[in-house]
């Protein structure tokens, strides 16, 4: 075991698509990376809803999650763009504004915690795969190369806002395309590839009919370009694409999280990918 990270689960992966959680655990084990549970962590909390309701609460709860990882002395690894966005932004805000650190610590003291700051990093699992593990090491684990046309969906909070994330070009990124192609599929171009799935910002919860119109626009573009699967790195985008196809007729495009794609390519047991909770059957 060389690398270790604190696994931040969030809400949608463990509670709606547990296959994503299982696949992540198995895939990183196969790559000799140790994921340590971040016991007692909660919601990130969600950037679109909770941060929109009350920034003070959002920052305090995010700082609590960060403080738990600090106690373990481990960088956080997230499997969701929302969790990544929330925790990364919170750590950034606290790095920039020391007064906010004081305010947050006044609250955390009441629950026996302290956020020191700048001790640990918040990472997205796809960034860890690309930068720390690397394409070559990933390729060496592939026993079941997959052959299909993948429509990669980056989602919004992976590389944006790029001013602080500095992961990839926000309009023409390549990290996920490279990660997908490393295990076999061809990553296709499609219109408005970088567009939002529609779920974020509390839109799915508040006005799902509008969120679904955005999703349908994306689905139509994927279909037109011949995409056979959608590959995502965010359980919320995943849920939005998968469940919208229940209500919008004319689509049958399976949705897979990158961890599940890797699980299949690494030859891990198919039943561990948890495809049973997917609305659109995954026939791979």
């Amino acid at each position: 075991m060389t690398e270790r990270y604190a696994l931040f689960l969030g809400c949608i992966a463990p509670l709606r698509y547990p296959g994503i959680e299982k696949a992540t655990r198995e895939v990183f084990k196969a790559l000799d990376v140790e994921l340590v549970d971040l016991e007692g962590a909660g919601c990130c909390p969600a950037p679109g809803v909770i941060r929109s309701f009350d920034q003070t609460t959002w920052l305090a709860l995010a700082a609590r999650n960060l403080a738990l990882a600090e106690k373990k002395g481990l960088d956080i690894i997230t499997i969701c763009n929302g969790c990544f966005g929330s925790l990364f932004d919170a750590a950034h805000l606290l790095h920039e504004d020391k007064q906010k650190v004081k305010e947050v610590n006044k609250i955390l003291k009441e629950v026996g915690l302290e956020y020191v700051g700048d001790k640990i990093k918040v990472r997205h699992f796809a960034d860890v795969l690309h930068k720390d593990i690397g394409i070559e090491r990933i390729k060496s684990k592939v026993v079941n190369p997959l052959n299909f046309k993948a429509a990669v969906h980056y989602g919004c909070h992976f590389a944006k806002p790029s001013k602080i994330k500095q992961l990839d070009d926000p309009e023409r990124p390549s990290i996920l395309d490279e990660l997908v192609e490393a295990v076999g599929p061809k990553s296709i171009n499609y219109r408005d590839k970088m567009m939002c799935c529609g779920a974020g910002g509390g839109l799915r919860t508040r006005a799902n009919e509008i969120a679904m119109k955005m999703t349908e626009e994306k689905l139509a573009n994927v279909k037109k370009a011949g995409g056979q699967f959608i590959v995502d790195v965010c359980p919320f985008c995943h849920l939005q694409y998968d469940r919208t196809q229940k209500d919008v007729p004319g689509y049958n495009i399976p949705v897979i999280h990158l961890s599940q794609l890797y699980g299949l390519a690494f030859g891990l047991p198919r039943e561990n990918m948890g495809f049973e909770s997917h609305h659109v059957p995954v026939n791979l």
Binding site: P47, G48, S52, C156, H157, K160, P161, S162, K163, P170, E171, M194, M195, C196, G198, A199, G200, G201, G202, L203, R206, A207, I210, A211, M214
Partner: peptide, 15 residues
């Protein structure tokens, strides 16, 4: 206004 809640926080405008 309802409009205030139509943003999905996608950050495209910010970019």
């Amino acid at each position: 206004s309802d409009d205030l809640w139509m943003c999905t926080t996608c950050y495209t405008c910010v970019e």
